[in-house]
Amino acid sequence: MARENGSAIVFSGLVLLVAGAFYAYARASQVDLGNDRYALSARFISANGLHVGAEVQLAGVPVGRVTAIALDPATAMANVGFTLDRDLSLPADSGVMIGSATMTGDDALMVVPGKAPARLPPGAVITNAQEAVSLEQQVSNYIFGNGGLPSDSMQ
């Protein structure tokens, strides 16, 4: 009987250890650990599909993480806080959009660099922001629209 109790205690301890390791991994994947980054934010009409911990991508390459999503009650807009790698210096007219590289992938915050000579300082707010287009809307645009082709190619 004492041996059964000892086995149950050891097994319970292993289960707790595995659960703790999984929790630590999940938390580490949601925050930046040891990366030298600076904070920016953007305002969206809707941040639908985006979540805290989502990647920030530039040219399909992860360059940061979404750190906060909050509703501004005064403007009824979603404020999205995110970080970027310190070695990136974005032009002041850069934009952001919510999207996914694939239909099955998680939504990410995609940075669209501008061309202005002035640079965004840390803590700046990007006002050139585009919301995510739902899968239904994308399919509808493809079926009933021009499939995303430039209008001059439809001749």
Rank of each mutant, 00 (worst) to 15 (best):
G13Y: 02
S41P: 09
V139K: 10
N48L: 07
L58K: 06
V56N: 03
A26T: 14
A59Y: 11
A76M: 15
G105P: 09
K115N: 11
L88K: 00
H51F: 08
G6Q: 12
L33G: 04
S41L: 04
A129E: 10
A21V: 13
G123E: 03
L109M: 03
V112I: 14
Q130K: 09
R86L: 12
G13L: 01
I126C: 07
V96D: 02
P91K: 10
V15M: 10
V80T: 03
T104N: 12
L50V: 00
R37A: 05
E55T: 05
V96E: 01
N141Y: 05
M77H: 08
G53S: 00
Q138E: 07
G147S: 01
T127N: 05
A78D: 15
G145A: 06
R86G: 07
A42N: 06
A101V: 11
G20A: 12
G49D: 01
D152N: 10
A2H: 12
R86F: 10
E131D: 10
A108G: 03
M110I: 15
G147K: 01
I9R: 12
A118I: 01
N5F: 13
Q30N: 11
A68D: 09
F144G: 00
P73K: 00
D72L: 12
F44L: 00
A92P: 04
M77T: 14
G123T: 02
M154W: 10
N128P: 03
G123C: 07
A47S: 07
A129D: 07
P117I: 10
G53D: 01
Q155K: 13
S94A: 15
A42K: 06
V52I: 13
I126V: 13
N48C: 04
S94R: 04
D106Q: 13
M154T: 12
L71S: 02
D36M: 09
N5L: 12
M154E: 10
N5H: 11
K115E: 12
N48T: 11
H51R: 07
S151H: 11
S41V: 04
V18D: 11
D106W: 13
